[in-house]
């Protein structure tokens, strides 16, 4: 079994990405300016762009651009299984600087093209998405098959601070939901999530923060829900200064994330209904 990545066109092994210390001033695409703390940013969504996938979706949330394709159910090799196997793979495009990449990979100039497998960040996101979606997909309906989700991060936010992974993952989860619906794979509920940031010194609670600079007094919380299934929590990720975390704060976070997730859910429902009417 070869270990090389055969799934995409790779550049030469010794190629190195262009790297510069100057952070380019990125122009915001959708709804960046003037978002209040309580608002969720405006997003652009589109489904069914990838024609040879079973389902796909594309999302633009200010500087975050994500594309998700769902393949399957596809036949397997090997022994009989009474349900589908579900796998998730998240990849950043090679030219992107990944959040915390210097921490995890030890070298910001690491060669993306030659690398095998996933980086730590990609692993973390993939695992979160898989855990969040496992309870909602009705795997028993698809015996002897695999359902594969491929996430491509086309653009990340402005920053590479740790907490920006949470915001990115938030939009990835939402985008994956749409891709799964587009594929027609049966799911028990739509999974949507919310992300909030808490700044202790200012006692400020920011829903869907656009700025994710690293701060000592910040706490980030990402929660994914199945809103119509008794608001079940299917994923929870807390990052930041965990000494600040209290039970009271946590329940506040979950409440805020739930309301953000419901807003996104409402928008998705609206989009899907329009899609069906046309």
């Amino acid at each position: 079994m070869s270990t090389a990545d055969r799934r995409r066109l790779l550049g030469p092994i010794d190629a190195s990405p262009l790297y510069s210390d100057i952070t380019p001033k990125v122009h915001s695409s959708v709804g960046e300016a003037g978002k209040s703390d309580k608002e969720v940013r405006k997003v652009f969504i589109k489904t069914g762009l990838v024609s040879n996938a079973s389902g796909s979706s594309y999302i633009e949330a200010s500087n975050i651009i994500v594309e998700v394709s769902v393949f399957g159910p596809r036949p397997i090799r090997g022994s009989f299984t009474d349900r589908a196997s579900f796998s998730v793979e998240c990849k950043f495009l090679p030219y992107l600087k990944q959040p915390q990449e210097d921490l995890f990979r030890g070298d910001t100039h690491a060669n993306n093209n030659g690398r095998q497998g996933l980086t730590e960040v990609e692993h973390k996101i993939s695992q979160y998405v898989e855990t969040a979606f496992l309870p909602c997909i009705i795997l028993e309906k698809y015996p002897k098959s695999t359902i594969d989700v491929f996430i491509t991060v086309i653009s990340t936010g402005n920053t590479t601070a740790p907490s920006s992974i949470l915001n990115l993952t938030n939009w990835i989860v939402n985008c994956s939901s749409l891709a799964l619906i587009d594929s027609g794979i049966e799911i028990k509920d739509i999974v949507t999530s919310g992300h909030i940031k808490y700044l202790q010194s200012e006692q400020r609670l920011i829903v869907d923060p656009l700025e994710n600079e690293e701060r000592e007094d910040a706490l980030d919380c990402l929660v994914s829900f199945e809103s119509l299934k008794n608001d079940e929590i299917v994923g929870l990720w807390i990052d930041g200064n965990q000494k600040l975390l209290t039970e009271e704060l946590l329940s506040k976070f979950i409440k805020e994330c739930s309301s953000m997730s419901e807003k996104i859910r409402a928008n998705f429902n609206n989009y899907l209904l329009k899609l069906c009417e046309n």
Binding site: M1, I76, F86, S87, G117, L118, L139, D148
Partner: peptide, 21 residues
């Protein structure tokens, strides 16, 4: 698009050793 490269498959809690065609 084959899945027979385990090193690039992120995670599969649901089933082990299900290799897709």
């Amino acid at each position: 698009q084959s899945l027979n490269n385990y090193s690039t498959v992120a995670s599969s809690n649901s089933l082990i050793n299900a290799t897709s065609a």
